[in-house]
Design a protein around this nucleic acid. Structure first.
Lengths: 114, 114
DNA sequence: TTGGCAAATCGAAACATTGCGATATGACGA
DNA sequence: TCGTCATATCGCAATGTTTCGATTTGCCAA
């Protein structure tokens, strides 16, 4: 029975997870969006539904970021795939907000994987 | 004199800094290397100079990662530009080690910028 | 001083990401 | 039912990243 030459400290799942997070944040606009979503009412104009609860709709993010509608939509789904944001659909709007639980756990993930 | 409509919480310098870190880590092999360098003697074979102090030479990283010499060298300079590793040249070898101070400060940078 | 080793840099091909306009889907109000 | 608005998805050209082999630089020992 062969003994592995060197130890593996970090699980592959955690590493892949962190990798996806880094990829999602490795874009200046997406990184900014995450910051804006921290205090939505400081960065976005009022909207139909209360942004502190449900989040901010794509149109507002698009306007603030100065990108096209399709780009804004794509950005948000990249961030969502990395589990950094959550979304709620209300009527014709999709509201995005930070996944605060996940974000709070990032330092730990960093410490464990990196 | 126009008043900015919304508040900026995060400095551009910090955001750019975090962006560079994310870019550097947004590659599976580079991410792995950072992990290996945490406990070098658990992951690399003995070498001329003591790796816990000076770090690990490029050749060892190259072999462990299974990439070409030029790729390994580039990877290390990407990590160094992001300030995640430091290097020491001894004779014909360049030893790389984690910038532990910087890495310890990452959670704070994350908390401040993201 | 010459040969060999380690590392860095260069140039290029393959591959991935970016970001747009066009189009599709679905909700709402007239 | 129709037109409009918000969002999502598609296809594509431009740009950026990856990764290599070849070349260059620098160090050391014979």
């Amino acid at each position: 029975m062969p003994i592995p030459r060197y130890t593996r400290t970090v699980s592959n799942a955690e590493l892949d997870d962190l990798l996806e997070v880094c990829k999602a944040l490795a874009n200046p606009t997406r990184l900014q969006i995450m910051g804006w979503l921290r205090d939505p009412s400081d960065h976005f104009a009022p909207q139909a539904d209360p942004m502190e609860e449900v989040g901010v709709c794509v149109k507002q993010i698009q306007e603030k970021a100065g990108v096209s509608q399709s780009t804004a939509s794509q950005y948000m789904s990249v961030l969502q795939r990395a589990d950094l944001v959550e979304s709620t659909r209300i009527g014709q709007w999709t509201y995005y907000r930070r996944n605060q639980k996940r974000i709070a756990a990032l330092p730990e993930l960093l410490g464990a994987s990196l």
